[in-house]
Simulated assay, not measured.
Amino acid sequence: MKRVLLLLFVSIASVHCFAQQPLSNDKGGTTAKNYYQEIPYEDINGKMIINVTVKGKAYRFLFDTGAPVLIGKEFITIADAIPVQAGQVTDVNEASSAVSILRVPGLTLGNVEFKDIQAPGYLPDFYKCWGVVGSIGSNLLRTSIVQIDSKKHVIILTDQPDKLSLAGKQSIPLILDTIQSDPKIKVILGNNSDMTLGFDTGDNGFLRIPEYYMTGLKKSNVFKLLAKGYGASQVGTSGLEKNNEKYMLTFPVFNVGDVKFKNVIVATSKNNIPGIGAKLLDYGIVTLDFINSKFYFDATTQSLDLNEKQWPFQPGFAGNQLTVGVVWEKGQKLVKLGEQIIDIDGTPFTSVDLCYLINKKAILQGKEKATVTVKSATGELRKVEMQKEFLK
């Protein structure tokens, strides 16, 4: 379901819901026919916020294709949601939480009403940072065609492909699971290899992969190891991931349909759920045809080089403090994991608010070098000079 880039990656990516007994969340839907709705969204640092109407009143929801519909506790009564069964949700770090699975009588997007949609009654505390009462996910969208245009900040919801001028455009298969119609695609790598990834608008990054994906692809020689590190960089619905080894990889070939990406860089996590995030929308329009199981990516250009310079360590967040979250090999002589970051280029960070970090652009965005004041475990302050550089 999510990842929020600070430079720090705060994540709640790809929430999956399972009942204690086998139960699909693909229940309910709309009886509307020949519908076409343009739904505007607010972009908060890569998070897509839409209005959903219940009983004639609009409420803010996160738009998240990497999760089922979720509703918060205070919204359960408002929506007259009815308990169906006990279950659990699993977040980006594959940590699970017990929940009650509910049936929501009615949710309206634009003028299209969806009835009896199943939703876990569960919303992490930091969703308050976006002022939302829930999220709209793949199990509600499964009977529609969804097109997302990030330039216009519009989501189109329809059952009429002709309205989207898709005829003649190249598509690739859209793979849907049987639990919540979670949408997945295969991207093509070098040496006739591929990789299956969930398309997750709840993650504002470009790519996330678990360490076991890296292990499985080693023999195919489709990536290059740029750096090794250690630390934690993702916050899921159940909290911060545990410190683990990290690997920074680059994929020289990474094709989405007929669009060729080069030098796609990603840092692994131990057990996260593989996915491609909303950053893909920076490069073109995405259409998820749930009805015909097709994925379209209409890019602004057919070849894109994503190679970029990297920092020697990444900030993290713990207990209202900005900390050293991940240390790469080139940062080992500069900082120690967990040290508090007090100041960056004259901006103090003695105490930080998670919502501020989530909703603002990455702290180091736009910088090529920085002076960072860190505080050691013994209370000693020191200034560290660091700069970005290309890794080979």
Rank of each mutant, 00 (worst) to 15 (best):
S165H: 13
I136L: 09
V222F: 10
S100A: 12
F199E: 05
K242H: 03
K262H: 09
Y356A: 14
N255G: 01
I101P: 08
V52Y: 08
N111Q: 09
Q147I: 05
L102E: 10
L176M: 12
F251A: 00
G110C: 07
T31V: 13
F61D: 11
A58Y: 07
T373K: 15
K73P: 00
T108H: 11
G229V: 06
A98H: 07
H153Y: 07
D43S: 14
V327C: 13
T30A: 15
Q234H: 09
V84T: 09
G275W: 00
V374I: 15
S269D: 08
T143W: 00
G198C: 05
Q160T: 12
I179L: 13
G56D: 04
A58E: 15
Q365A: 13
L8T: 13
L174E: 10
K330S: 12
S165A: 12
L166N: 04
W328P: 05
K262Q: 08
V187S: 09
R382A: 03
E245D: 12
L364Q: 08
F295H: 12
D116F: 02
Y247N: 13
N307M: 14
I145K: 04
F317L: 11
L176P: 05
N191Q: 08
A13N: 15
Q310K: 13
V372Y: 11
A318G: 00
L164E: 05
Q37H: 09
M214V: 08
F114V: 05
L164S: 09
D64E: 11
R382C: 08
I155D: 03
F297P: 05
F223V: 03
G239H: 01
G121S: 05
Y296R: 13
G277P: 02
V256H: 01
G56Q: 11
D298W: 04
V286Q: 00
C17N: 02
K186D: 10
G236E: 00
K57V: 10
P105M: 12
K228S: 11
V4I: 14
P312T: 14
L8V: 08
V264Q: 02
A299S: 14
N320V: 07
D149V: 05
G66H: 11
K375H: 10
V264G: 02
R60E: 03
L322I: 04
A227I: 00
K55T: 00
T250P: 00
G29V: 05
K383N: 09
G331Y: 06
R60Q: 13
K262T: 08
V84K: 13
G325T: 09
L197H: 02
F295P: 09
K169E: 07
T378G: 00
L5N: 12
I276V: 04
I78Q: 03
T178E: 10
P68N: 14
N263D: 07
K242W: 01
I148D: 03
I71D: 12
G87H: 06
L7H: 15
T250M: 03
N292M: 08
A362G: 15
V286N: 02
Y122Q: 10
P274C: 06
K163D: 00
T250C: 03
Y127N: 02
S144Y: 06
K262F: 03
D289N: 15
Y59E: 06
G121M: 05
V52T: 15
P210A: 11
M248V: 03
N191L: 04
S96C: 04
K246H: 02
P105I: 10
A95L: 14
T268E: 01
K55L: 02
